[in-house]
């Protein structure tokens, strides 16, 4: 059992760039999402039926969710939150199809967390301006400054570690279970560890990111 990801192949430039399974699975997820979104948005009717209904429900839910929390800024951040949500739900549950989840790799989760924090900073600057953003470090009192700086680091750390820890714990427990009892029992446990926990961690990640953005634009 290894924490790191195995290298699938190496791109022979700049002294060899290793491409890990995380990256390959991410590409697979990207391909799935791109093809699915191209197929699903084709030939829409005014009266929704079948797949259109499903997609509309999801995107409408995302839009109203972000609208409630972010107010007038929802349109700029709903696509990002939606992208993260779709990526994470596939990445967390792809273990069901026998692929290694990319979120089992701390590199991927920390990339996600740092992107989320960058988006939060962008939101803050967009809402308050550069000056207002700089000022927000000294509010409500000047001696809050070190805490705010610390916050800048603990937030992405906890985001990344939470996602990574949950997914790798589920992965390791699933591995242990299937080593002890190879049939039937792993399937039952995988409903909880892969499906439920994966969906829950997606919700938590998106929800926390949105909460940080909400706090930033207020």
């Amino acid at each position: 059992m290894e924490i790191g990801q195995s290298v699938v192949f190496t791109i022979p430039i700049l002294g060899g760039i290793p491409v890990t399974t995380t990256v390959v699975v991410t590409w697979i997820i990207m391909a799935i999402l791109t093809i699915a979104s191209l197929i699903v948005t084709r030939g829409w009717n005014l009266v929704p039926t079948g797949a259109q209904n499903f997609v509309e429900t999801i995107i409408d839910g995302l839009n109203s969710f972000t609208k409630d929390a972010l107010g007038e800024y929802w349109a700029s951040f709903a696509p990002y939150l939606g992208t993260v949500a779709l990526y994470l739900i596939l990445a967390n549950t792809i273990d069901l199809f026998g692929l290694t989840p990319p979120t089992k790799d701390l590199s991927a989760t920390s990339a996600l967390a740092i992107m989320s924090i960058i988006v939060v900073i962008i939101a803050s600057i967009k809402a308050k301006g550069l000056k207002g953003y700089a000022k927000s470090f000294f509010e409500p009192m000047p001696f809050f400054f070190p805490m705010k700086i610390l916050d800048m680091f603990t937030r992405p750390l906890s985001l990344a570690a939470r996602l990574f820890g949950n997914i790798i714990a589920a992965f390791i427990i699933m591995g242990l279970i299937s080593k002890v009892v190879p049939i039937v029992v792993p399937a039952i446990f995988s409903i909880y560890f892969d499906l439920f926990d994966g969906a829950l961690q997606m919700v938590v990640f998106v929800f926390l990111t949105m909460l940080y953005i909400e706090e930033a634009v207020e």
Binding site: S158, A161, R162, F164, G165, N166, V204, F207, L208, L211
Partner: peptide, 17 residues
């Protein structure tokens, strides 16, 4: 609840890490 659960869960995750 989700927020609180996520935040308090962080300690367990740090331990695991």
């Amino acid at each position: 609840l989700l927020l609180g659960g996520a935040l308090s869960e962080a300690t367990a995750i740090y331990g695991l890490l």
